[in-house]
Write a protein that binds this DNA or RNA. Structure first.
Length: 649
RNA sequence: GCCGGCGUAGCUCAGUGGUAGAGCAGCUGAUUCGUAAUCAGCAGGUCGGUGGUUCAAUCCCACUCGCCGGCUCCA
């Protein structure tokens, strides 16, 4: 090998070796194999992601050495490549089984992949079975993913011949001089930027999960395609573990737990998206609300209350009628005047602000309300407690001077973090949503408001992403999406800076200079809505609420009716100490009583038999099966008192 | 709203063109029992709703309501 044709490659661990400049990256597998625990799905060459089927010389090689980094499935990039290749295998299988199908797009997603097809009819479960079988065959056939570079014209011609109209649409949108890459695996070729794993055989374990309709390019004016979701892993064990996790998610579904634990219900007879809270759910809600009220009193908020309906004119003035109408219910006429059910609380709080002449010394004013609002949600989007039509926001509107905005946002962020932490959430994603198409106000106002939000997040060192065009019609917002124990994200907290409603309602305060100035409003909800927050909370705890939130904290279980009197004494002592206690006096075996207390996820069970009566003690068992042993009543009370005060999770 | 699936007892689910079953829960009785199910008996449903086909519909068809999985949209 002459020096001009060879180059030194450097691996991240510092080892170096010569390699042919035009060598296939797949050859690296053999050369370095012993030091890798798993097979790389791709390589990074001087930082550029490359498939194993590519040559080293596909990237410009200026120096006489080059950095080569293996990309494994265990990395996010590796998973994307792996799932993307899986999607191609599925597309090949579908194309072979249904030759008339047209291909749309097939990207990797978190935990898997999908591919959209235009088949003219939906896929049946039997279809999915057949497709999966065919995929197994394709994987076993060991087709190498071959990358090919085409001119735009050649690519258009190729997919024209294939009748792939969706691919043509994608290619046509590329710039004229752009090169187009396709990947070929055996008889199947797909438009694709790549990279891919080396061969179909690398995709070892996969499963097709569901088929569902999806609009072409996500636009409901476009035709509906048929989407198949699937997932894949390098080993059957990893796939099985993932499927098990899906089962776990199902087990923790708040709709199932809500029923099992008798917390709430949504019934036909009442209407979709309208929640009734059963006694146990309502009790937890009360505890959440008590905590919320206490914190807001401590943090300088004033509580206000407002009605559920208001004159149409109010909503006209606020802009809701122009910009929010599709989420509002039809007006009702009362004594010849139109009224609207409220979708938001802000106009009411604004009207409270306007009842006095305000001084700069009064600001900031913080009006808080657990305000129940009603929004029309399209029938297909309703989902348990997480998406409903009537819900209660833990809402507040802060009226402040321009020089107070940032300070107020910082305080809101602090209170948010504290609140979420109290409920066991310490992992969230933060987004700043900017001006949407349908919105009110000047560009300047929007820019100032957005800058204030970003600046506060930077001060707090909270990492965030921009969500373009996702703001509310009157202002930009910070959204916190809570990540639950399973890593799923739910949008709850929202903080919105608003220059526009104060203007529309002509709000003012008298400044130091004796002149009128316009206050700025901050709309904020920390938990978002009690319904959604509760839904997330149920799943987060899998229904096993911490002691301070558990609807029944202690269950007293006498073994025979010989202990009933003592059981009632014990229960009385616990109730007097402020605990929520139930006593199970049924003529049943203690095993059954324990089983039912376990199923209800009661934190503490107190078993009372002859021994306990004799020693005037309690046998304490936790719901995780842990046996605390015998305690005196006062020491048990002390123990659970501390647990409640600490709000231990 | 759109695409598909589903709707049988309070809950979880079987089932059939000839007007329905199981387990759990409920009720009654027996059992007095030590850390996740004691036994027996009883009762419980116009098979989501409306219309159609048929001698006959819970089953087939149409419409409708709701739920589930996605799409789109949001706290």
């Amino acid at each position: 090998m002459t020096p001009s044709k060879s180059i030194t490659i450097r691996f991240p661990d510092g080892t170096e070796r010569p390699f042919a400049k035009d060598g296939l990256l797949s050859d690296l597998l053999d050369q370095a194999k012993p030091s890798w625990k798993e097979t790389p799905v791709a390589f990074k060459i001087n930082g550029a992601l490359m498939g194993l089927g590519q040559r080293l010389s596909d990237v410009p090689l200026a120096a006489d050495s080059v950095a080569v980094e293996p990309v494994f499935f265990s990395s996010p990039e590796g998973q994307e490549i792996y799932r993307h290749s899986s999607a191609h295998i599925m597309a090949q299988a579908v194309k072979e089984l249904f030759p008339n199908v047209k291909l749309a797009i097939g990207p990797p997603i978190e935990d898997g992949f999908y591919y959209d097809f235009d088949l003219g009819r939906p896929f049946t479960p039997e279809d999915l079975e057949k497709i999966e079988q065919r995929m197994k065959k394709i994987a076993a056939d060991h087709h190498v993913f071959k990358r090919k570079v085409l001119s735009k014209q050649d690519a258009l011609r190729f997919f024209e011949e294939q009748g792939e109209t969706y691919k043509l649409e994608l290619i046509r949108e590329l710039p004229e001089d752009e090169i187009v890459t396709v990947y070929e695996q055996g008889p199947f070729t797909d438009l694709c930027r790549g990279p891919h794993v080396f061969s179909t055989r690398h995709v070892a374990a996969f499963k097709l999960l569901t088929a569902a309709g999806a609009y072409w390019r996500g636009d409901e004016r476009n035709p509906m395609l048929q989407r198949i979701y699937g997932t894949s892993f390098p080993t059957q064990e990893a796939l099985d573990a993932h499927l098990k996790r899906l089962e776990e998610i199902k087990r923790r579904d708040h709709r199932r737990l809500g029923k099992d634990l008798d917390l709430y219900n949504v019934m036909d007879e009442i209407g979709p998206g309208l929640v009734i809270w059963h006694p146990k759910g309502a009790l937890i809600r009360k505890l959440i609300e008590d905590f919320w009220r206490e914190q807001h009193l401590r943090h300088g908020y004033d509580f206000v209350c407002s009605p559920h309906i208001a004159r149409l004119d109010l909503w006209k003035r606020s802009g809701h009628l122009d910009f929010y109408r599709e989420n509002m219910y039809a007006p009702m006429s009362i004594d010849g005047i139109d009224y609207e059910l409220k979708p938001m609380n802000c106009p009411f709080h604004i009207m409270i602000y306007k009842t006095h002449l305000r001084s700069y010394r009064d600001l900031p004013l913080r009006f808080a309300e657990l305000g129940t609002v009603y929004r029309y949600e399209r029938s297909g989007v309703l989902h348990g407690l997480l998406r409903v039509r009537g819900f209660t926001q833990d809402d507040a509107h802060l009226f402040c001077r321009p020089d107070q905005i940032e300070q107020e946002i910082l305080k809101v962020l602090d209170l948010t973090v504290f609140t979420l932490k109290t409920f066991g959430f310490d992992d969230y994603e933060i987004y700043v949503s900017t001006r949407p198409e349908k919105s009110v106000g000047s560009t300047e106002h929007w820019e100032r408001a957005t800058a204030a939000l970003e600046s506060a997040l930077k001060t707090k060192d909270m990492a965030y992403r921009i969500d373009p065009g996702e703001g509310v019609f009157y202002g930009p917002k910070i959204d916190l999406k809570i990540k639950d124990v399973l890593g799923r994200a739910w949008q709850c907290t929202t903080v919105q800076v608003d220059f526009n409603l104060p203007e529309r309602f002509n709000l003012s305060y008298i400044g130091e200079d004796g002149k009128e100035h316009q206050p700025i409003m901050i709309h904020r909800a920390l938990m978002g809505s009690i319904e959604r927050f509760f839904g997330v909370l149920i799943e987060h705890y899998a229904g096993a609420f911490p002691l301070w939130l558990a609807p029944v904290q202690v269950k007293v279980l006498p073994i025979t009716d010989q202990q009933h009197a003592y059981a009632q004494d014990v229960a009385g002592a616990l109730i007097r100490a402020g605990f929520r206690v139930e006593t199970d006096l049924r003529n049943e075996k203690v095993g059954l009583k324990i089983r039912e207390a376990e199923k209800a996820k009661t934190p503490y069970m107190v078993v009372l038999g002859a021994r306990e009566v004799q020693g005037q003690k309690l046998s304490v068992r936790k719901r995780n099966g842990e046996n605390i042993g015998e305690l005196e009543i006062p020491s048990f009370i002390e123990r659970i008192n501390n647990e409640v005060l600490n709000k231990s999770t």
